Amino acid sequence: MSDYLLETRGLTKEFKGFAAVQNVDLKIQRGTIHALIGPNGAGKTTVFNLLTKFLQPTRGTIFYDGVDITRDEPAQIARRGVVRSFQISATFGHMTALENVRVALQRRLGTSYHFWRAERSLRVLDDQAMDLLEQVDLGSFARTLAVEMPYGRKRALEIATTLALDPALMLLDEPTQGMGHEDVDRVAELIKRVAAKRTVAMVEHNLSVVEKLCDRITVLQRGEILAEGTYAEVSNDPRVLEAYVGVEA
Rank of each mutant, 00 (worst) to 15 (best):
L169W: 02
M1P: 06
D3E: 15
T12V: 03
A160Y: 07
V83I: 15
A90I: 02
V247K: 09
L105I: 10
L213P: 00
A195M: 00
V67H: 10
E248N: 09
K53F: 03
L6A: 13
Q87K: 02
A156Y: 03
R198S: 04
L172F: 01
V184S: 05
V210N: 01
G66M: 09
D126V: 07
L172M: 10
E14Y: 09
V47I: 14
E99I: 07
T162D: 05
T111R: 15
A164T: 07
E119A: 15
R216T: 13
I33A: 02
T144G: 02
L138S: 03
R123T: 13
L50E: 01
N49V: 06
Q76M: 12
G10N: 14
F92Q: 06
D185N: 10
A129K: 06
I69G: 03
I37P: 03
E134P: 01
M179W: 00
R155N: 05
S89K: 09
L133Y: 13
L133Q: 09
V101R: 01
M95A: 12
G223D: 04
G41E: 12
V124N: 10
F86H: 02
R239H: 13
T46W: 06
P74M: 06
I225P: 01
V83A: 03
Y231L: 11
T176Q: 00
Q29R: 15
L132D: 11
A168Q: 12
L132I: 12
V82S: 03
S140Q: 15
D68F: 11
A75D: 11
E182N: 07
L138P: 00
V82C: 00
V101F: 07
R84D: 01
I62E: 02
T52K: 05
D166K: 11
E174M: 02
P57L: 06
E189S: 13
K44V: 11
L157T: 06
E73M: 09
T52Q: 04
R117S: 13
D72F: 15
N40L: 12
R143I: 05
R143P: 02
I69F: 13
Q177K: 08
K154C: 03
V21H: 08
R143V: 06
W116R: 10
F92Y: 11
S235D: 12
V103E: 08
P175W: 01
L157C: 05
F92W: 08
M179G: 01
R143C: 07
D126M: 09
L169T: 03
T46H: 09
I77L: 12
F86A: 06
F48W: 05
R143H: 13
T45W: 12
D173F: 01
A156D: 00
L55F: 14
R80F: 04
Y64R: 03
S140L: 14
E248P: 02
L122V: 05
T162S: 09
G93N: 11
I225N: 08
A97R: 04
V124F: 14
D126S: 14
A129N: 06
L50M: 05
H114V: 13
K212D: 00
P39W: 10
S235E: 13
D173Y: 03
V83Q: 04
A168C: 08
G43L: 14
A129F: 10
I37G: 00
I33V: 13
G93D: 14
G38V: 01
R9Y: 12
K197H: 11
W116G: 09
G10M: 12
G223I: 07
V200H: 02
K44G: 10
V187G: 00
A168K: 14
D68A: 12
